[in-house]
Simulated assay, not measured.
Amino acid sequence: MEDLDTQPIFKPKYIPIKIMYWGPGEVGKTTNFECLKRKFATKLVSKGISIETTDKRTLWCDSVTFEFQFPSINCVVQAIVSTTTGQERFLATREYVLENADGAVFVADSDPKKMASNCRSFEELKSFSQKSQIPIYILLNKRDLPNAISINEFVTQMGLPTQNPTKLLKIPYESTANDTKNPGDVSRIFSDLLVEVLRRKLT
């Protein structure tokens, strides 16, 4: 998503895009959020907001806006990135925050003991987004766990496709978002989803 040297002749078109980060509690959604803010710090439009409980867990959402220029197609993308709370007691807020989203990143936990929570949260996301039919990309976080689930087992238990006909996307993407030096696919999944949403809006 680097800026191209070509300068647009006409005033660029501004395209708003909303991307949600969804997943069970304490899976690393906010950690991904903070990682994106560091990676694309020069693209930040605002400092963002985080609404937390007293124990530093997401109460409502985290939200920030980035601005990316695509001179080759003469448009500027204003990307609003938000996370939902993963706590079960705040279920009602998740559906509300998802409203008007153009795409979602589902963040899953690599701990085999958390697979039931992963599956439940994923089904919830699919149910809430059924009408809008938004693209959902899957990020398997916490790959540094000593007992991390294998990719094959994760794909099987989540009921994900075992074949990727385009071979352009990873199923799933992998990350260790709390590793500031090597976070894995944190920025890649965001960039890929942003481009896919933009493609859909322009076709």
Results as ranks from 00 to 15, higher is better:
residue 112 P to S: 12
residue 105 V to P: 06
residue 2 E to W: 14
residue 195 V to T: 11
residue 131 K to Y: 04
residue 83 T to A: 04
residue 190 F to W: 12
residue 15 I to T: 15
residue 169 L to D: 13
residue 151 I to C: 10
residue 186 V to G: 06
residue 165 P to A: 03
residue 37 K to M: 14
residue 153 E to V: 01
residue 180 T to P: 01
residue 12 P to Q: 07
residue 153 E to C: 04
residue 49 I to S: 12
residue 176 T to P: 01
residue 44 L to V: 08
residue 58 T to L: 09
residue 203 T to R: 12
residue 144 D to C: 09
residue 161 P to M: 01
residue 199 R to D: 10
residue 169 L to W: 14
residue 177 A to C: 05
residue 114 K to I: 00
residue 11 K to Q: 15
residue 98 L to F: 12
residue 49 I to W: 00
residue 133 Q to F: 01
residue 100 N to P: 00
residue 28 G to R: 11
residue 127 S to W: 07
residue 153 E to Q: 12
residue 27 V to S: 01
residue 123 E to G: 15
residue 48 G to C: 14
residue 198 L to W: 10
residue 98 L to K: 02
residue 9 I to Q: 13
residue 152 N to A: 08
residue 94 R to C: 00
residue 62 D to H: 09
residue 82 S to V: 01
residue 127 S to N: 09
residue 75 C to P: 07
residue 178 N to P: 00
residue 172 P to K: 11
residue 93 T to G: 00
residue 77 V to A: 09
residue 151 I to V: 14
residue 86 G to P: 10
residue 136 I to K: 04
residue 108 A to M: 13
residue 68 F to P: 05
residue 128 F to K: 03
residue 124 E to A: 01
residue 79 A to K: 00
residue 51 I to H: 04
residue 198 L to S: 06
residue 104 A to F: 02
residue 140 L to K: 03
residue 111 D to R: 05
residue 78 Q to Y: 12
